[in-house]
């Protein structure tokens, strides 16, 4: 009985979207590709991406399968009886991590499945979501500096070290924001920011502020550590998406190397040693 119900609801969904013509299968595929490019770019794990896309495809009466490559998504949308299919390859959208967009896109996939939105309505909502402005950049700057200062305290730095770390993060992170806005290569940004932050933090050693100047230097660059790419990569690894996991891991390692390069340079210049 339930299977008949299901098949009935599926056919009604099919007629609602008019999926039986070629163009709409193409439209669905293009939309789902765009959706996944944004979801992956905003920092979603691959298991969530797969689940969301499948949910949306099924609500429109078709199936979707995809391969997630480091910089591209290969999407195929097909009818349940395999009578027709459409394939598209899209480059992932390069953008800073944005969990706000990630959350809203996940909500969109559920509201499409539960409220039976048509493709057009969903697309309109999608266009609105991707225009969500990022958080106020001065607020982020302040919070990130506080966070790094708190981190210094967690690593048993004294209050002098905390103050130095706060200032060096404030300046380093501001530089990062300015350079990112000018579309400077992210690796170069990491090297320069780590270099400047570590030099500023090593003034604690230079003028002997407090008793833990070495902790100040060590924690001054921690705001650059790509934590979420590392976590995402290991999460993909556990889900068996090895290529995507490897791609994200290499990206995170490259960024960590850049930050260490900047830090080593700064310490060398200030005649400090890391160990």
């Amino acid at each position: 009985m339930s299977s008949i119900d299901q098949s009935l609801s599926k056919t009604s969904a099919i007629t609602e979207c008019g999926i039986k013509t070629d163009t709409s299968l193409k439209e669905i595929c293009l939309f789902l590709s765009e959706y996944s490019a944004w979801l992956l770019g905003s920092g979603a794990t691959s298991i969530r991406l797969e689940k969301n896309v499948r949910r949306m495809a099924e609500s429109m009466g078709c199936h979707a399968e995809m391969t997630i490559l480091p910089r591209h998504i290969h999407m195929t949308v097909f009818l349940p009886d395999h009578s027709d299919s459409y394939t598209y390859i899209i480059a992932t959208h390069p953008m800073p991590l944005n969990y706000d967009i990630n959350t809203q896109l996940s909500r969109l996939s559920w509201s499409m499945a539960d409220d039976h939105l048509t493709l057009k309505e969903t697309q309109e909502k999608f266009e609105k979501i991707i225009k969500t402005p990022p958080a106020n950049k001065y607020l982020v700057l302040f919070l990130a500096s506080c966070a790094n200062a708190a981190f210094c305290r967690l690593f048993t730095g004294d209050w002098a070290a905390v103050g130095v770390v706060f200032l060096s993060t404030l300046i380093g992170f501001y530089l990062r924001q300015v350079m990112t806005a000018h579309k400077v290569d992210v690796r170069l940004v990491f090297i320069i920011c780590a270099f400047i932050s570590s030099i500023l933090a090593s003034t604690a050693t230079l003028f002997s502020f407090g008793h833990t100047p070495d902790i100040a230097v060590g924690t001054s660059v921690l705001y650059l550590v790509p934590g979420i790419p590392f976590l995402n990569s290991f999460s993909d690894l556990l889900n068996g998406h090895y290529i995507c996991a490897f791609g994200r891991f290499v990206h995170a390692v490259v960024l960590t190397c850049c930050l260490s390069l900047g830090l080593c340079g700064g310490m060398l210049l200030m005649n400090l040693s890391m160990f």
Binding site: D100, V140, A144, L154
Partner: peptide, 17 residues
């Protein structure tokens, strides 16, 4: 307390809701 401050700040970098 300090972990909470650190979490808020580092979360802010990734634009959460």
């Amino acid at each position: 307390l300090f972990a909470a401050i650190a979490a808020i700040g580092f979360a802010a970098i990734s634009n959460p809701p």
